[in-house]
Design a protein around this nucleic acid. Structure first.
Lengths: 359, 359
DNA sequence: CTGAAAGCGCTAACAA
DNA sequence: TTGTTAGCGCTTTCAG
């Protein structure tokens, strides 16, 4: 009976110990000192205030013993800094964004920041909603790819001077930090390469909505390549796929496109998903790459290098983009009020097996 | 001069207005009511307390006018609920995790939860660090793939009863909610398929660390397939790649493996990255798939279906996994104290062109 | 050298 | 029907 009671007691106190939150006050109470002291010591500000070494040791010892970890929410409220960054991408399952996310996460983590990640699905209203959400959650900064057409909405909901960096896509009329690549030039060079190989009937596959800067610029690159060589552009060789259909793997538009334009000998696709969609369609139609169709695409994904044939593409410096984005965000957070800067990084045109001279 | 002053004043008040945070108190002060009232009204608890409709309208009007949005950090501190979930995966840039993340994010968002995402890079110490971080940030629950060998560390840092769900990998000796697939069975069936096709010299490519449950179970599946058919297992046909080397795209081990075991006619790879590594190596060595080597892998990624040849694989129900994980987490958060349940989902063995009968 | 007290913005008992 | 008050856990003047 006695033992039993003992046992219960022990279990009880154990449970309590496990459950009771260890806070600054609890440590302070334990040690009969003030919260201030504990806070000071634990934040390394004790030496500056020349606080008794012994006291410091006692505090630290007790904190370790109880495994004290400051409540970051309380801290965030008090300091007005959550050490959290919002990352808003179009679609986290897209390898392009997933890989950038990884870099961003690592960089942020190194600097003591966490990431709240969200996907807009290319929806303006969702994007608006999510940005508001991030702001409500008091993130210290936002790194995002916008899907907006006009700058007004963002201007309205994001306070001036709020640490913000746009990457991948910029928004005309919206002055902010930005990091990305020269989409027009990269595309122009790729299309010129196709022209140099003798192709004239070159298709261009892109996505809705067309006002997204990257998509728009890539299309410009296609057009200016023809312009530079003084070749006429055939309008019907430009196909704009519906984003939602692509997501749902409805490739009918592409099949139609190939059937209606059998004279096409080369194709440029505006992103990795389009390239993949195209490869599937081509396979179904029994066309061979590159014999029947040369293909070159924007964005490199792992598999493009080992497929048969390997796919020629324009590779973006993903790690670098993430790196710069985080640096820009932290810069703004720390120094406050920096003129917005734009960083344009180099792309790389990778020649693989999917392109060949016209025969 | 007068105009100038006017201008300055205007700019000043503008700046102030833009800058001044709109809080409960500011609204309350504006309207000469108490914070309580405002809070009640804005949280829809006004009717229950039968508060004057007129007052309610005034509050709501003013709140809209000032575009008031509650500070979620303050709210989180006060309510002890941050409406934030921690998501810890091995590597967010791996399409397998990226796609699950997408579902999880969407589900969470629908329920009013945000996601703090982090990658452990298969490092136990990093994982430990990140879990602690998430806990410090007061997330309401954690959804994670563990990379731990032993349950002790997690047991130590995660409070009992804390809403937690493990997915993909389980941890023996660690009792928690779990959602995943039957890796052993799925692999066994795939390897049996290879055996049925007449292959006997079947390689098995896996990763370090071997104690990760999914990897271990897949290996068991390989072994038990041979066992079931009473065929002997050749130890040297099992190759375990170093995770870091794989990440760094150092495929020498694989090349060696093929050179040393030219008699191998079929290969099972334990995940998508290994399959990709293998495809690259095979290409370099000039081996043809499936003529010289039949390949089947765990995990389906988009490109496996359109490569030439398309790759046979075991597909996991990614969306479903994410869905169940979120449901389990929210269940625990809301109901508190639910017996930990394990959900094992069905995999699908997809036969494509990379496997054929031995000739 | 150390402590008391204020306050970040919010919610919820408890009064009135 | 509305307001007062306390407090979540923390940092930070300002006194002592």
């Amino acid at each position: 009976m006695k033992n039993n009671l003992h046992f219960l007691l022990k279990r009880f106190s154990f449970a309590v110990m496990k459950t009771r939150k260890v806070t600054l006050s609890s440590i302070a109470d334990d040690l009969n000192v003030s919260k201030t002291l504990v806070s000071l010591v634990l934040n390394g500000k004790a030496d500056a205030l020349s606080i008794n070494k012994e006291t410091q040791k006692r505090v630290i010892a007790r904190a370790n013993e109880l495994n004290y970890k400051p409540n970051q929410v309380a801290r965030g409220l008090r300091m007005g800094q959550t050490h959290t960054l919002g990352l808003l991408v179009a679609d986290i399952s897209n390898p392009f964004y997933a890989r950038i996310t990884r870099t961003i996460e690592h960089m942020a983590e190194t600097e003591g920041y966490s990431l709240i990640v969200c996907s807009s699905d290319e929806s303006e209203s969702r994007e608006k909603h999510l940005v508001k959400m991030l702001l409500d959650r008091q993130v210290d900064g936002i790194i995002m790819t916008t899907t907006m057409h006009q700058p007004e909405v963002l201007k309205e909901i994001i306070p001036t001077q709020f640490p913000l960096v746009l990457f991948d896509r910029y928004l005309t009329g919206f002055d902010s930090h930005y990091v990305g690549v020269d989409n027009e030039q990269a595309t122009r060079n790729a299309v010129k390469h196709l022209l140099d190989l003798g192709h004239r009937n070159i298709g261009f596959l892109t996505l809705t909505p067309n006002y997204i800067s990257t998509l728009y610029d890539r299309q410009q690159g296609y057009l200016t390549a023809f312009e530079a060589y003084n070749f006429p552009v055939t309008d019907k060789y430009l196909l704009q796929l519906d984003y939602v259909r692509l997501k749902n793997k409805d490739y009918n538009q592409i099949t139609q496109f190939f059937l209606e334009n059998p004279e096409i000998t080369a194709l440029f696709t505006s992103n990795n998903n389009l390239a993949i969609a195209c490869l599937k369609t081509v396979k179904e139609l029994g066309k061979r790459i590159p014999e029947d169709l040369s293909l070159i695409t924007f964005d490199d994904v792992e598999c493009f290098s080992y497929t048969a044939p390997a796919i020629s593409c324009i590779a973006q410096p993903l790690e670098k983009i993430g790196e710069v984005a985080v640096k820009m965000a932290l810069q703004q957070i720390k120094n406050k009020r920096i003129d917005s800067q734009k960083v344009i990084l180099q792309t790389e045109l990778i020649y693989r097996d999917s392109t060949c001279a016209i025969n």
